Structure formats: structure tokens, C-alpha cells
Simulated assay, not measured.
Amino acid sequence: MTEDRIPDTPLLDRARQLRGYRLNKMAMGLGDPANRAAFKADERAYLDRFGLSEEERRAVLARDWREMIRLGGNLFFILKISAVDPIRITEIGAHQAGMDHETFLRERLGKKG
């Protein structure tokens, strides 16, 4: 994997995309209602179906959005997890930016709290 050229910004290059294949396949599966139900019922068992590494499993279970992206997760696929446990897209954005939600809304989106 090449070193990221933009500080704190993991670039989705070919190497990272290949590394994230299992993670992305798991997340894409959440588009199916039966898979969402299985994920809700037993997240660990659902993750086992896809052979995720321990590092990937920890990131998903912790809902560590930045880490999932760093591990090769495609944001559009990873966001399917937010359909399982409703989280606002702005909360994910705040996590990605390393900010609390209110600061993110104020500083990045110009919203007044």
C-alpha cells in the first residue's frame, strides 16, 4: 500500500481497495433486510460469515468509521451499517473529522446550535 499523500486522509487506492474487500462485501450485504436482521441479532456471527480480520471486526463492532475507511472500507458501502443502528450522516462526518457533533455542525456546516 502506498503511503497516503494527504495527512489524515486514507486514499482508496487499489491496494487499500483489495485489502477492504471482505469489509466492503460484509457492508454491502446489509442492503438485504434478512442480512440486517441477522446483523442486529448477532453482529459477531454475521461478521464471521465474511472472514473479517480481528482488526476489521473491532472497527465494525466499535463503529470506528475512520478505522473502517483506513482498513479499505468504501464509505458508500460502510454507510450501510448506519441503516442498522440509525446514526446521522453528520455524526459519521464528525467522527471522520475528529470532532464532536456540535462542533462539526457549527464549523463544517455553518449551523448554529
Score class of each variant (00 low, 15 high):
T2C: 08
D4R: 10
D4M: 05
R5M: 13
R5L: 07
R5V: 06
P7Y: 08
D8P: 00
T9R: 04
T9L: 15
P10K: 00
L11V: 14
L12G: 08
D13W: 02
D13P: 03
L18V: 00
L18H: 10
R19M: 12
R19Q: 13
Y21A: 12
R22L: 03
R22C: 11
L23C: 09
K25S: 10
K25H: 13
M26V: 14
A27V: 10
M28P: 03
M28Q: 13
M28E: 13
M28H: 12
G29A: 14
G29Y: 14
G31Y: 08
G31L: 03
G31A: 02
D32I: 15
P33I: 14
N35M: 09
R36A: 04
R36F: 01
A37H: 14
A38Y: 10
A38G: 12
F39I: 14
A41Q: 14
R44I: 10
R44S: 15
L47C: 15
L47Y: 07
L47M: 15
D48H: 09
R49L: 15
R49P: 08
R49H: 09
F50V: 07
F50S: 07
G51Q: 12
S53V: 15
E54W: 01
E55A: 07
E56I: 08
R58D: 15
R58F: 11
A59G: 02
A59L: 11
A59N: 06
V60E: 14
L61F: 09
L61S: 15
R63L: 13
R63N: 08
D64N: 14
D64H: 06
D64K: 03
W65H: 11
W65N: 02
W65Q: 06
R66G: 11
E67P: 07
E67S: 05
E67H: 08
M68P: 08
I69C: 09
I69G: 06
R70D: 11
R70K: 15
R70A: 12
L71G: 02
G72L: 13
G72E: 14
G72S: 12
L75T: 02
F76T: 13
F76D: 06
F76E: 10
F76G: 03
F77V: 01
F77L: 03
I78N: 03
L79V: 02
L79K: 11
K80Q: 07
K80C: 00
I81F: 05
A83H: 06
V84H: 09
P86A: 12
P86E: 03
I87L: 02
I87E: 00
I89K: 01
I89A: 02
T90N: 13
T90K: 10
I92A: 05
I92Q: 02
I92D: 00
I92G: 05
G93N: 07
G93L: 07
A94C: 03
A94E: 11
H95N: 06
H95G: 01
A97T: 02
A97K: 05
G98R: 05
G98Y: 06
M99A: 05
M99W: 04
M99Q: 12
M99H: 07
D100L: 05
H101C: 00
E102R: 01
E102D: 09
T103W: 01
R106H: 11
R106L: 09
R106E: 12
E107F: 01
R108T: 05
R108Y: 00
L109Y: 00
G110M: 03
G110V: 04
G113H: 04
G113T: 11
